[in-house]
C-alpha cells in the first residue's frame, strides 16, 4: 500500500493518505490537549496546595513569571486576592471538566433514552416527548439557570442539573432521528420476526447502530457545556463563591483588565483551547465513523 506505483491511482492514494493523516492528527492533537488539561486539573491544585479562600494581599496582581516572596514563581501571575493564577485556572478546569462530564452523562443517558422511546413507539408518546423538547429548546438556558439558582441556591450540583435540563434535547433529537432511520431496516424487522422483544430491539439492535452520531454530538456538546458553565459562573449564577471556575475567574478579572490583563485573558485562552479541542475532536470522530472515509 505504502509503495504505491506511480500510476494514475497515485494522486488518489496521496490524497487518501493525506486525509487519513489528517483524521489522525485531528483526533490525536485535541485528545492530547484535553488529556493535558485533565491531568493538570487533577494534579496542579494538589501540588500547589491551592486554597481558593486564602487571601494574600501582598502578592496581589503580580504579572506572569513574577517571583513571589516565598521563593516560588507564579508562572501565570497572581489574581486580585494574591492567589496563584495557574493553580486557580487548573482548579477551575477541574470544576469545568467535572461539570462537563457529569452533564454529558446525565443529559446523554436521559436524552438518548427519551429520544429512542419517542422514535421507536411513535404516536402520542413521540408527540408529547418531542413537544416537551421543543418547549425546552424555546426556553433560554441562562434564564432557567437564574431561576434554579434562585430556588435551589448556587452549587456545582445545581449547575449540573441546569445544564442537563438544557442539553438533553440535543441527544433526544439525535437518538430519535437515528431510531427513525433504523427501525424500518430489514434487520430490525428480522429481529422482530425472531420473537425478540422491544427491550432487546431498542437496546441491543437499535442503540449500537445509533451510537456513532450520538458520540459525535457528545464530544461537541462537551465544549458547549464547559462554555455554558463558564457563562453561568461569569454571570454569578453558576458555581458559588469559593469554588474556582474558569468563568468566575474571568469575571473577577474583568475590572482589572486594564491593569492586570492576565487574570481574565489566560483562563479565557484555556477555555478557548478546551472548547476548540472538543469541537475539532467531534469533527474528527465524525469523519472517522463515516463509512465512506473508513477505508482511507
Amino acid at each position: 500500500m505504502t509503495t504505491a506505483p506511480t500510476t494514475s491511482a497515485a494522486p488518489a492514494m496521496t490524497k487518501a493518505r493525506r486525509s487519513r493523516w489528517g483524521v489522525h492528527t485531528r483526533t490525536l492533537v485535541p485528545c492530547a490537549i484535553i488529556a493535558l488539561i485533565a491531568v493538570g486539573a487533577i494534579f496542579v491544585p494538589v501540588l500547589y496546595g491551592y486554597d481558593p479562600l486564602r487571601v494574600d494581599l501582598a502578592d496581589r496582581l503580580k504579572p506572569p513569571g513574577s517571583v513571589l516572596p516565598n521563593g516560588s514563581i507564579a508562572v501565570f501571575g497572581t489574581d486580585q486576592i494574591g492567589s496563584d493564577l495557574f493553580a486557580q485556572m487548573m482548579a477551575g478546569a477541574r470544576v469545568s471538566l467535572i461539570i462537563g462530564a457529569a452533564t454529558l452523562a446525565i443529559a446523554g443517558v436521559i436524552g438518548v433514552l427519551i429520544g429512542m422511546l419517542a422514535g421507536y413507539y411513535g404516536g402520542w408518546l413521540d408527540t408529547v416527548l418531542m413537544r416537551v423538547a421543543d418547549i425546552q429548546l424555546a426556553f433560554p438556558a441562562i434564564l432557567l439557570a437564574v431561576l434554579l439558582a434562585a430556588v435551589l441556591g448556587q452549587g456545582v450540583l445545581n449547575v449540573i442539573i441546569v445544564l442537563s435540563i438544557s442539553n438533553w434535547v440535543v441527544f433526544a433529537r439525535i437518538a430519535r432521528s437515528q431510531v427513525l432511520a433504523l427501525k424500518d431496516r430489514e434487520y430490525v424487522e428480522a429481529a422482530r420476526t425472531l420473537g425478540l422483544g422491544n427491550f432487546h430491539i431498542i437496546f441491543r439492535t437499535l442503540l449500537p447502530g445509533s451510537l456513532p452520531p450520538i458520540l459525535v454530538v457528545g464530544t461537541v456538546e462537551l465544549g458547549h457545556v464547559v462554555l455554558a458553565e463558564a457563562a453561568l459562573s461569569f454571570l454569578g449564577v453558576g458555581v458559588p463563591m469559593g469554588t474556582a471556575s474558569l468563568g468566575s475567574t474571568i469575571a473577577n478579572g474583568v475590572q482589572y483588565l486594564s491593569t492586570a490583563w492576565w487574570i481574565s485573558t489566560l483562563p479565557g485562552v484555556l477555555l478557548l483551547l478546551l472548547v476548540l479541542a472538543t469541537g475539532v475532536l467531534g469533527d474528527a470522530v465524525r469523519d472517522r465513523l463515516d463509512p465512506r472515509l473508513r477505508s482511507l
Partner: peptide, 27 residues
C-alpha cells in the same frame, strides 16, 4: 420464520455471523 429479500439489509451489520445465528435463541 422468514427469509428476507435483501441479504445486505436483513443482517445486523454490527453483529458477527455467530451472533446473528445465536440471536433467535436469545428470544
Amino acid at each position: 420464520q422468514m427469509v428476507f429479500q435483501d441479504p445486505f439489509a436483513s443482517l445486523n451489520p454490527r453483529l458477527s455471523v455467530q451472533e446473528i445465528i445465536v440471536e433467535p435463541w436469545l428470544a
